[in-house]
Amino acid sequence: MRHRPLKNQPLSLQTDGRLSLFPVGCGAAFSQTLGNNNWLVLKGETSLLIDCGPKTPPRLRDCMVDPTDIGYFLVTHSHADHIGGLEEVMLRSRYIAHKKPALILEDDYRDTLWHESLRGGCAYNEVVDNRFLELEDFWQIERPCKRADLPRNAGELDLGTLNIKLIRTNHLPEQARTWQEAAYSVGILIDERIFFSGDTKFDPELLAELDQRFDLEAIFHDAQGFTGGLHASVEELSSLDKGLRSRVWLMHYGDDWYKHTAMIEWAGFAGFAAEYTYLDFD
């Protein structure tokens, strides 16, 4: 994996065919200095934005990218730092860009996302055929196919030459002991090479199974500085096998991340993922 800082140039939504990840932000939900932990996945002419918090549309424009030009959107779960910018994308797409971007969406999450989060700000802007707007008026819905042979009944979808698999995670509520008890939340397996955790409690069994099946090149994992609550902690992640830990890049971290640099190096993690930096995979 190679790192390329964006520097003073427009962010490109295309690559020469290789897989590239671009963190628009790496910050935890309450970070004041970092962007929302929302990432672009780029391969050839395919562009996929994983999550879209309220800070992400203006950050994309700072990179000289109109969010409505992104080909695909994927939501891992319904916390505001992951969906708070979707309403802007929806309204700009319909009323300014006059296009319908693609939203990757599993059927069992559709009603939760629309009725409990997005409907109030989007449905009542106009009446079409004697009805208010629906989610499908804003998005072209792309539905993953179920893969019962993979961990947690994964959903799979090909986007051009890019393959993604949605893997259920145990993020919330805090009291949920297993992913079956938890509200909808997913991590993303990218081209069977990279695992992007989304938000999740510490789940070493899932990481071990995915690594055994796919021999992962890199894991981008959310990490908090204390143990407990809704996220994996650095202390918990430090208990992973050394070989696995050396491929873990930490994301979704707090404003005080730099205070933990020495400990992260001592524990043998790959490091902290950096905002506004291309991560290229040959």
Score class of each variant (00 low, 15 high):
His3Arg: 15
Asn8Tyr: 13
Ser12Gln: 13
Asp16Val: 14
Asp16Cys: 12
Cys26Asn: 14
Cys26Arg: 15
Gly27Asn: 14
Ser31Arg: 11
Val41Ile: 09
Val41Phe: 02
Lys43Ile: 15
Thr46Leu: 02
Leu49Lys: 00
Ile50Asp: 00
Cys52Gly: 02
Pro54Glu: 12
Leu60Phe: 03
Asp62Gln: 15
Cys63Val: 08
Pro67Ile: 04
Asp69Ile: 06
Tyr72Pro: 04
Leu74Lys: 00
Ser78Glu: 02
His82Thr: 04
Glu88Asn: 02
Asp111Glu: 11
Thr112Gln: 03
Thr112Glu: 00
Leu113Tyr: 00
Ser117Pro: 06
Ser117Ala: 04
Cys122Thr: 04
Asp137Asn: 05
Cys145Asp: 09
Lys146His: 13
Arg147Val: 13
Arg147Asp: 11
Pro151Ala: 03
Arg152Ala: 08
His171Gly: 05
His171Tyr: 15
Pro173Glu: 04
Pro173Leu: 02
Gln175Gly: 05
Arg177Trp: 03
Thr178Asn: 00
Glu181Thr: 08
Tyr184Pro: 09
Leu189Cys: 07
Ile190Asp: 00
Glu192Val: 12
Ile194Gln: 07
Ser197Ala: 13
Asp199Ala: 13
Phe202Leu: 08
Asp215Gln: 08
Asp215His: 10
Gly225Asp: 14
Leu230Phe: 13
His231Asp: 09
His231Cys: 14
Ala232Gln: 08
Val234Leu: 14
Ser238Gln: 08
Arg247Ala: 01
Leu250Arg: 10
Met251His: 13
Met251Cys: 14
Tyr253Val: 14
Gly254Cys: 13
Trp257Met: 06
Met263Glu: 15
Ile264Lys: 03
Glu265Pro: 08
Glu265Ile: 03
Phe269Ser: 10
Phe269Pro: 12
Ala273Val: 14
Glu275His: 11
Tyr276Lys: 15
Tyr276Thr: 14
Tyr278Asp: 07
Phe281Glu: 06
Phe281His: 06
